[in-house]
Write a protein that binds this DNA or RNA. Sequence first.
DNA 1: ATTTATCAGGTTGGCATACAACTTTGACAC
DNA 2: GTGTCAAAGTTGTATGCCAACCTGATAAAT
Lengths: 260, 260
Amino acid sequence: MEPFGRFSPVNDERLPMVKAASLADILYAKLEEEIISGVIPAGSKLPAQKDIAEREEVSRTVVREAVARLEAQGFAVARQGSGVYVSETAQYRAFQVTKEELSELSDVIKLLEMRQAIEAEMAGLAAARRTQADIAEMRAALRRMREVGDDPAASAQVDSEFHLAIARATQNDYFVRFIQFLGVRLVPPRSLYLRDQSEDVHHAYVGKVSDEHEALLEAIIRMDIEGARLAARLHMQESLIRHSELSDAIASGNDGSRPK
Amino acid sequence: MEPFGRFSPVNDERLPMVKAASLADILYAKLEEEIISGVIPAGSKLPAQKDIAEREEVSRTVVREAVARLEAQGFAVARQGSGVYVSETAQYRAFQVTKEELSELSDVIKLLEMRQAIEAEMAGLAAARRTQADIAEMRAALRRMREVGDDPAASAQVDSEFHLAIARATQNDYFVRFIQFLGVRLVPPRSLYLRDQSEDVHHAYVGKVSDEHEALLEAIIRMDIEGARLAARLHMQESLIRHSELSDAIASGNDGSRPK
DNA sequence: ATTTATCAGGTTGGCATACAACTTTGACAC
DNA sequence: GTGTCAAAGTTGTATGCCAACCTGATAAAT
């Protein structure tokens, strides 16, 4: 049985990150667990809300709220007059990452590793399927990258646009979604960029990233599938290293805790 | 605005898969739309449940249920005594796939393509990092695969166990989660397996899958990263083809009527 | 002037009850 | 058997009440 970390899915950081678990939270977790583990088999009918309320010693209001959540997550469907049925395709929960996990450096690295996997394959598919429009889009992103130059926030933005363009070139929307999903989670906080970096260090950084991007784009343009995969893997590898270095830097610089 | 059609209660012989929209359903959809479109900005506080109830001319019960769903989807967080707040990151919620998407064959194929990407990279990582325990687990899965033989349901189960074992061997939990997440969505419905397949057709199918699995495991054991990637890619490619064939089969077999 | 305590009003969480809308079931008539 | 229909069971909605909690303002203390 796990703690209730996952119920406040997202929120701003400065407010209490763990809200107290309500009865509905607890009941939901209980039912979810029973469904996932198979104690309540797929397709079966849940006990009547009245009975659940009695058994769990809560009011029907709480049961209804828990059921509403189950429905929202796709675990169950309620049919008026009949009952609440466990979805045939239960175990339907979405792929999600909690805030707590993202605060762990090791988790961020694991997610980056996952992104590396996706990026490599995306690059291969993009190389095979890219249209002229896709190429134009990627080129435009790289051009903007040169234009924004040393502004760290802007260059991070453009960087993600470039990767999005690659995702689109796969002609598979799910890659786009996934990159968007992971993207916002893996961008190092602005504060990292803004700390005491000398101009030329940052300049060198930008240049290196640019070279990697160019190489990747070249491979995609000449439809070199293996080459694209390699270039993407390399790029993400470097990115991972850069991220680690940044993290090490703040780890030794300050503890990164925020006063409350 | 969405239809949410409520029809006159006609009774077809079969159970309607679309249940009538409840007031809570409608209100949820309304709020979700307002949040996504930005009418209700991120971070802002929703009106008090009492006020929403008045404005929408429903009871607070309905409002509470709608809010519970918003919370379950990560769109909002309710704080007792204070109010309900729209998530800052509402637009970037979890990576998820709707039921409607899964009913589209083209979407299933795109997801399989995504899974192919992940599986290939997973195999590479597994080859680099697998422990003896991991190997034992994978071997056990393949052994069970031979044992269950021709039972389609059981072999599908064991198949997913094998892939899970590979995911674990990457020593990266997110791969495990992702495979679990995608897995249940991409297993062809049992009905597909049960249709008129002659014994030997199915037997040939099992044999082929087995060979592919063996090759993949061998590569992982000898820590052949590139070989593992290749074997995995091949396996998923074959799997994709098999899936397409099955789908074609039913598409021509029954009417396969599908809206849109 | 600044901090601390207190209080009043507002808001969500939970409970209880009643009824409406719908489904299922089984008895009954045919 | 088959069809009808009433009764029981279940979810959906409404209403009222109170508890727990948050917020901001006011008062008190330092």
